[in-house]
């Protein structure tokens, strides 16, 4: 057994560069749980926000209540309530289920669903702010060519809101990948729980959690690149960046935005 108390470089290096099979499974769990939770969270958040804009007051109130409850209580509490609480009451127990040969343990289903619901409340806020920041004249112009509000939202306002949404959405997903570590509390075998289990047998606490930190950092960094690629693509699609020269990307980002916007208008 290596000497305790000094940083063991070899252990750390092996953890980072020669991860064990369970470690990689944990990593994969972290990735797919965050992707699914975020995707469902965005979809649900959009629905919640559209309901909050409904013409019917009771619907608006219900959606408002939903957001208030979810943003006002800790995710950890929600997780335990959904997975352990519902089962303890005998109301609902998550069961393992398999789809096309892939088995999804009940606890992971509970994790994804709770994360998605919690995320939807925050996404509803982000979507609201993005919709509100689209010029009101856009809705009027769409209505003036005979569009109903729903159509105008779908074809005119939302496509513009999406662009505004991407930076805060990127933030949310960055956070989501790290927040999945909370699922360890209900027993999801993701990256953090793996580190904990390894720690309980080897006591190489610093090396193990530093290696875990390196993995989270790698995930969020890769996402950072993907996000900036998405932002560039959306900008190019609305004609704001005319030439995608690499030099400009590195040193002069965002200049295309101001050029056209004010031209011609006094």
């Amino acid at each position: 057994m290596p000497q305790l108390g000094a940083f063991d470089w070899h252990t750390f290096r092996d953890l980072v560069f020669q991860p064990s099979h369970p470690w990689l499974v944990g990593l994969w769990t972290t990735v797919y749980v965050s992707v699914l939770a975020q995707a469902f969270g965005v979809a649900l958040g959009l629905v919640v926000e559209l309901v909050r804009r409904s013409r019917r007051a009771p619907l608006r109130a219900a959606a408002g209540l939903y957001v208030w409850l979810l943003r006002g209580t800790p995710l950890l509490v929600q997780l335990v309530l959904v997975y352990n609480g519902l089962a303890a009451l005998g109301l609902f127990r998550f069961r393992d289920f398999s789809l096309a040969g892939l088995s999804v343990p009940g606890v992971i289903q509970a994790g994804i669903i709770t994360l998605a619901i919690n995320e939807s409340a925050y996404m509803a806020e982000i979507i609201r702010a993005s919709i509100n920041s689209v010029d009101r004249g856009q809705m009027e112009a769409a209505e003036s060519i005979g569009m109903t509000r729903g159509r105008a939202m779908r074809f005119v306002v939302l496509p513009q809101a999406v662009r505004i949404m991407i930076p805060p959405l990127g933030n949310e997903f960055n956070n989501m990948m790290k927040v999945t570590s909370l699922l360890s509390v209900i027993g999801v075998e993701e990256l953090f729980l793996n580190a904990q289990e390894l720690n309980s047998t080897t006591f190489r606490t610093f090396e193990i959690f530093l290696a875990a930190a390196v993995y989270y950092l790698a995930l969020t960094t890769i996402w950072g690149f993907i996000q900036s690629w998405i932002e560039r693509r959306l900008a190019a699609r609305s004609g704001e960046v005319r030439t995608g020269g690499i030099g400009r990307r590195l040193f002069g980002s965002g200049a295309g935005l101001e050029i056209g916007a004010a031209r011609g208008a006094r």
């Binding site: 609305s238 056209g260 916007a261 031209r263 011609g264």
Partner: peptide, 11 residues
């Protein structure tokens, strides 16, 4: 052309 590439009169 996208609107941002047009002058006010063209828009």
């Amino acid at each position: 052309a996208h609107p941002s590439q047009l002058s006010g009169g063209q828009q």
